[in-house]
Design a protein around this nucleic acid. Structure first.
Length: 509
RNA sequence: GCCGCGUUGGUCAAUCGGUUAAGACGCCUCCCUUUCACGGAGGAAUGACGAGUUCGACUCUCGUACGUGGUACCA
């Protein structure tokens, strides 16, 4: 039994972003590859940003992707409940206190306004300067490092709000190993004394990750590259808390960038360029604004995780199409790219197209059925639908395409693209289609071969090229220039429908 | 500004000191198909720049440029 434990620790603040899903995916793959556990922890320590429903939504997304966590707030059992940080408030407080007692952290009474004023002041003198709460000025600020213990006790007794900050060491090179990037070093004096415990008693991310990763026995911690700059704080915390030997191995994943321009991919980019950024539909409870998800746009979860896996990771071989099981087997952190990857929606669609093509009709059945039912198409036989699916799936990039590609098997086309016929239309052709109706009527065994023979026979007899007749025939049956072989379609929709559709179009011409 | 991280065709990427620098997406041409696709064949297009190390550098080192992240009582 392996002891590998990874976690995905999102904040329930809104839709689940591509980058988030990928972090979850890599964590899942790594855990599963090593026969370990993948846990979900909800980092809801910022009460201002908390969004109702976001937690369940995250769970739904992971489940849809097929990477459901083994442990989490939603899973019964699980040794480390609660998995919601807001419910572990007291635990963090205790460790923050331990840090203060050991002299690695201190109380700070400066108000946010005071600090903002300091920052503004520095900016005033030096446009590029930054006020840092660090060793150079912490002794001039309103904290327990400067105040006497009596003064501190008095302030606390009076109920003056305070935060607890880490006391970063001076002139120390903080070094750690990143599974993707190798050794990373930071000069301790350059990182400031981050707040560990906020005035409302909630921990900040910095304290919470460390405490929870330790308590939840996380062995490998993967997160986005944006966390790299604060890693030294976490490293020191692991050390100060006395857990250095149990510190997980870190991997900071490259960012997913916007397709054009530069920067991190955001929901806005999706809106602007016309593609989803969230895994599933997300409706903002405040604005009621709906953001379309990959699922609802018609992506297969298999394709979705496949394309995400290939953004930043590659197997080293030519193959690009992988099932989840294959990914689990092949995945390794040292094949993850260091640089960020721009998201390419065209390639994303290609993955989905490939998955639809390779998926069996039986597996596609339920999804396709749902789409047709949504459009009020009556489906009588699953078996027939499966044959139809096999016939058209090569032509579908998104699941929604199945509607256009399947309806005409069930209903007469609502509109006929007669512009496609008209230019080359003439009396001879018209006569052909008039005559073919009665000939079709006499076909006893209605199958594609018989239909084709009958069709070609008359064409030859009337001295018209078969090819010139096939296009009009197709448009009559399906309404436009698309779909599989015409005779195949004619067979499947049946003799009566075929004749009726010819007749309908003839009246339009 | 400071600090961190990065940089192979338009995009995703292979290569881990010696190759004509893979492959995929997209684009273009052709074949198949008198539909749309699938499939097949081919094409255009790449190592940011400059030094060094080396018999030899896309691969190692340094510098520059550029990009990106952080610089919150947000994660």
């Amino acid at each position: 039994m392996s002891n590998v434990r990874t976690r995905f620790a999102p904040s329930p603040t809104g839709g689940l972003h591509l980058g988030g899903v990928r972090t979850a995916l890599f964590s899942y793959l790594y855990a599963k590859k090593h026969k370990g556990q993948f846990v979900l922890r909800i980092e809801d320590t910022d009460q201002n940003r908390y969004v109702e429903g976001a937690e369940q939504y995250i769970i739904d997304c992971l489940t849809w992707c097929g990477i459901a966590p083994d442990e989490g707030p939603h899973v019964e059992g699980g040794e480390h409940h609660p998995y919601r940080q807001s419910e572990r408030k007291e635990t963090y407080k205790q460790y923050a206190q331990q840090l203060v007692d050991a002299g690695h952290a201190y109380y700070a009474f400066d108000t946010q306004e005071e600090l903002e004023a300091k920052r503004a002041e520095v900016k005033l003198h030096n446009e590029h300067g930054t006020f840092q709460y660090d060793s150079t000025n912490r002794l001039h600020l309103n904290n327990s490092l400067r105040l006497t213990s009596d003064e501190v006790a008095k302030l606390i007794n009076e109920g003056v709000p305070y935060v607890i900050r880490i006391k970063m060491p001076e002139n120390e090179l903080i070094t750690f190993q990143d599974m993707i990037r190798g050794e990373i070093s930071n000069e301790s004096s350059l990182v400031d004394d981050k707040v560990l415990l906020k005035a409302d008693g909630m921990p900040t991310y910095h304290l919470a990750v460390v405490v929870d990763d330790y308590l939840m026995k996380i062995t490998h911690a993967f997160r986005g590259e944006e966390w790299l700059p604060s890693a030294p704080v976490h490293i020191k915390l692991w050390e100060y808390l006395g857990w250095k030997n149990e510190m997980p191995q870190w991997a900071h994943l490259p960012l997913i960038l916007k397709p054009d321009g530069n920067g991190k991919l955001s929901k806005r980019d999706g809106d602007r360029l016309g593609f989803p950024v969230f895994a599933m539909n997300w409706t903002d409870p405040k604005t009621n604004e709906l953001a379309t998800g990959f699922k609802e746009l018609g992506f297969l979860p298999e394709a979705f995780i496949n394309l995400l896996a290939m953004l930043g990771w590659s197997s080293g071989e030519e193959k690009e199409l992988f099932s989840k099981e294959e990914l689990i087997q092949l995945f390794s952190m040292d094949r993850v790219h260091k640089g960020g990857a721009k998201f390419d929606f065209e390639k994303a669609k290609w993955f989905n197209h490939e998955w639809i093509k390779h998926q069996s009709a039986e597996l596609l059945l339920n999804d396709v059925k749902a789409i047709l039912v949504k459009h009020h198409v009556e489906i009588t036989s699953d078996e027939a639908l499966c044959s139809i699916i096999s016939l058209v799936k090569d032509r579908c990039t998104l699941l929604g395409d199945f509607y256009t590609q399947c309806v005409y098997f069930y209903e007469s086309p609502k509109s006929i693209e007669i512009e496609a016929i008209q230019p080359k239309w003439n009396e001879d052709k018209k006569n052909f289609f008039v005559k073919i109706q009665s000939l079709f009527n006499d076909v006893s065994d209605w199958n594609m071969n018989e239909i084709e023979t009958c069709f070609k026979h008359l064409a030859t007899e009337m001295n018209i090229k078969v090819g010139e007749l096939q296009l009009p025939f197709r448009v009559m049956l399906v309404g436009g220039k698309f779909g599989p072989g015409v005779f195949q379609i004619a067979e499947m929709i049946g003799k009566e429908n075929t004749i009726a559709r010819i007749n309908t179009t003839l009246n339009l011409l």
